[in-house]
Write a protein that binds this DNA or RNA. Structure first.
Lengths: 347, 347
DNA sequence: GCATCCCACTGAACCGCTTCACAAGCATTC
DNA sequence: GAATGCTTGTGAAGCGGTTCAGTGGGATGC
């Protein structure tokens, strides 16, 4: 090693200590246990920190402490207000617990999901909250077994052995299907996909249940993503169908799809709800503002976020990833009936 | 130190090395320069990694490398689709550069802004992208002077000496104001706040310019935040005004406000655009879907995000925070005229 | 047959902070 | 006045990686 001056980045804790005439441990205490330091010393150290413009290095801190003080939150779609609200709930609860939130988006792609889960684990987050794309449950299990607590979001039954917070999507789907039937629909179409998403499967299953019971036909119009552009595509397709084949009721797997379908129908001159009734899922705030206010199935997104974070915190407390714990918190969905479905013998 | 078995977290790089019968440096190379390792060795090490379930420790890595490989992105409001789109643009560009994005929300509060900027700096992010709340420019300057490159988002003229990417909000405000005048409005109200936000000041200034030139009255109805609930409140107030005092044109500082104002007006039986024309700002995707499709001033949010990230990367490349560089990238806003303003002698 | 060069690999030093056993100073207590 | 207990401070030993000067040995050159 040459004696040359390395382009060291900034002042170190050690520099602060030297300047204040104390040991490094004392500076560390000033930073984290000011109560244990005599007032005069405290003042001297704080002055030194200010004068030098000292900024602690989080990586070094984390390395020696062993904990990161952060949790990872992985959602399906950062541009869907439902997940924004959910994330807001998580952040609120995390803030109260003095935890930072690392937010990432899988965009419904399992390769990105894998990538971000890896990053989270490498960052040694204290816990992970994830809306799984599906198909990565081995990775989730492995991470949990290595000691990182995980809480599944927006996931029900499957993947046993995991703690989860979700809405009963089968019931939600049933509510939507039943509502369309009550509105007089005889040909219902379910718009949504990919079916690798559990949410989609469950909502479809619930709708099918209601529809079957009523002896009504159900078609599945698949989408490759739960996004507005896919909704638009399907909406145009529906509008283009000959009146005989066209469904008279559409249940879209989320509001992004539903709003886009709604718009495409209106643009094509199809009347909503008279020709086609439309209902969505999530009840995002924009649903009520739509050209024809959109009926939807409400999920308590913010609450779910809060609750999930609280559960995660609980597992983080009593150690070891909570392998045993298999706990499901299930919220109940609510129907929000609006103009997009209200017509003949409206129930 | 007792000889007790510490509850060590997981296998270390050193354990992998031992198991594969190589030195730690070699394992490190397998991880980051696989080309420099002989195939047989590579295979052995990779096997050891898999068998042990080794997960690298990001903190340790960062500490010894000195770089974090991440940038910080601080936005005003995570629930505003405009910022979601912008963030998507940033993430896209960052991904291509192999940079992770730390996303945080100030919620338009300068205390949170300070907090997250501190965190970013402590995490030694390689750069920061920020939509400033206002009033924290000393902190920004300090951070930049200590060597972390910063690019300001959605900020124009002020804070010289900074690189920024923004839309010309004064022009945007002028467009909106002129459009209302063209629509025949004689009493224009500007809804938005707080004025500590530069965006608000500029949009108001632009509107005032257009309105003054036309000899039309302009009232400012302030809000404490740029959120839907504030919009609803003001919307109700407008609806409650006696017809004589009520503005006949409303320019809201963003679409969240505008959509809420629109809804409140409609609910109160005020006709849009006949009684009151409404125009927003940002042109979020939901604007076009509204009950009365909302006119708006479009900002190329995604593009701005991309561009900002690219600029930041450029500064990160040629070192030292880019103190000298004062570069402003200005996008031009576009008017998106829709039903909410289209009436009498519509321009 | 010897000097040279590469290649693959080694391992100790270092990144910047926290921790914790220990010590010093000073009051109290009996 | 020695024993006891607090309060305040000390500083070396990690935390788990990366780096890079160096080592050994086979291939190449002449």
């Amino acid at each position: 090693m040459t004696g040359e001056a390395r382009p060291t980045r900034g002042p170190l804790l050690r520099d602060v200590a030297e300047r204040a005439g104390v040991a490094t441990g004392t500076v560390s205490n000033v930073l984290h246990n000011p109560g244990k330091v005599a007032p005069a010393t405290l003042a001297r150290v704080e002055a030194a920190i200010a004068e030098l413009g000292y900024v602690p290095n989080a990586a070094a801190r984390q390395l020696s402490r062993g904990r990161s003080g952060a949790i990872g939150l992985l959602v399906l779609d950062a541009r869907n207000p439902f997940f924004n609200d959910l994330a807001a709930g998580v952040e609120e609860a995390a803030g109260q617990l003095d935890l930072a939130v690392l937010l990432a988006t899988s965009s419904e792609r399992s390769d990105r999901e894998r990538l971000y889960l890896d990053r989270f684990e490498q960052s040694r987050v204290d816990g992970i909250l994830v809306t799984p794309v599906g198909g990565s449950s081995k990775q989730l299990k492995a991470i949990r077994d290595r000691g990182t607590p995980i809480v599944l979001l927006d996931r029900l039954a499957s993947t046993p052995g995991f703690i989860s917070v979700a809405v009963d999507d089968v019931e939600g789907g049933r509510l939507a299907g039943q509502h369309l039937i009550d509105a007089g629909c005889r040909h219902v179409a379910f718009v949504g996909g990919p079916v690798s998403l559990e949410q989609v499967r469950n909502r479809l299953a619930g709708a099918r249940r209601a529809v079957d019971a009523a002896g009504v036909a159900l078609a599945h119009l698949p989408t490759s993503r739960m996004s507005a552009d896919e909704g638009q595509r399907v909406g145009r397709e529906i509008a283009a169908m000959p009146a005989g084949e066209r469904p008279d009721g559409v249940f879209a797997a989320n509001d992004l799809l539903a709003l886009a379908v709604l718009q495409a129908l209106l643009l094509a001159g199809v009347r909503v709800p008279d020709d086609v009734a439309v209902i969505g899922y999530d009840d995002i705030s924009f649903a009520a503002l739509a050209a024809v206010p959109l009926s939807s199935v409400r999920q308590p997104s913010y609450q779910m976020g809060r609750r999930a974070m609280e559960l995660l915190a609980a597992v983080m407390q009593d150690g070891e990833g909570g392998q045993g714990t298999s706990r499901q918190v299930v919220f109940m969905p609510e129907l929000a009936a609006r103009a997009s479905t209200l017509r003949r013998r409206a129930g």
